[in-house]
Amino acid sequence: MDDIQKKLASPSKASHEDIVGRIISYSCIAAIIILVISILYFITSRGLATFLTDHVNLWQFLTGKDWNPGSLNAQGKPQVGALPMIVTSFSVTILSALVATPFAIAVALFMTDIAPKSGTKFLQPVIELLVGIPSVVYGFIGLTVVVPVIRNLFGGTGAGILAGTIVLFVMVLPTITSLAVDALRAVPAYFRSASLALGATRFQTIYKVLLRAAMPRLLTAVIFGMARAFGEALAVQMVIGNAVLMPRNLITPTSTLTSQLTTNIGNTIMGTLPNNALWSLALILLLMSLVFNLLVRYIGKRGEIKS
């Protein structure tokens, strides 16, 4: 056996290095997986305690309108009806996405098709700045600007779904916009040129060709925006009023899942029903974020097949 043959047959410094590298990067990945699993496990087990330990009826929890976990109702059952918060959370989420989407698509179209060069140069930083503003600052401005304006216009306290919607609209706008820009940019250039070559106007091209081709990804963008709105806590908490009441209109104080959680989790004692009920709200938040995730995947897959 010659020298080279021996070297070929035995491990060297490089082989050891590679084992070290694999160990390092595999352990980081393992840590992430453990982390995600434990988040899912802990929140789920805490959130289920309301139903498993305290024997609250799941259906009553989801449809009951009275939330006062510390006390019992006339039938001697704890009052844990989460419907008001569920309704409010969905209301602010859907309303803010509805308002933000036209603006987001307009800004995206402006950046991709109407003024691609100057539009991108000018609007890209605008979007990035909007993303960069922290949610407490949005909440503070909502509290000092939006709520007083609503109060003066419509009376009442000013806090409520309308104020929450306005604040969330500005917060989800950059999320939807930047994803909508990606969606429109992903439409191949020949779609545009083919349509224009057939004599279609720019608007016809945008409306009949671009938006349709980009539809699945635009929907994904809106869902990402809704996920952000649904999970946003502090900004909403500062302007929603935090009264656990069924919202009767857009300007009465009410409460979202997140605002109820942030307001009260510190005021309850671990292991008691009032505390467990809050963890159940957290579980709803967790499940909804998984649902949003699944929706994005589902739409993404369907979009792939079509094109």
Partner: peptide, 23 residues
Amino acid sequence: IRTAIEVLSSLPSVVVGLFGYLL
């Protein structure tokens, strides 16, 4: 793994905070 990371990134920060609180 990619799904796990996506799930982590889509969790509301309040849920992440509450998990930190709990654990």
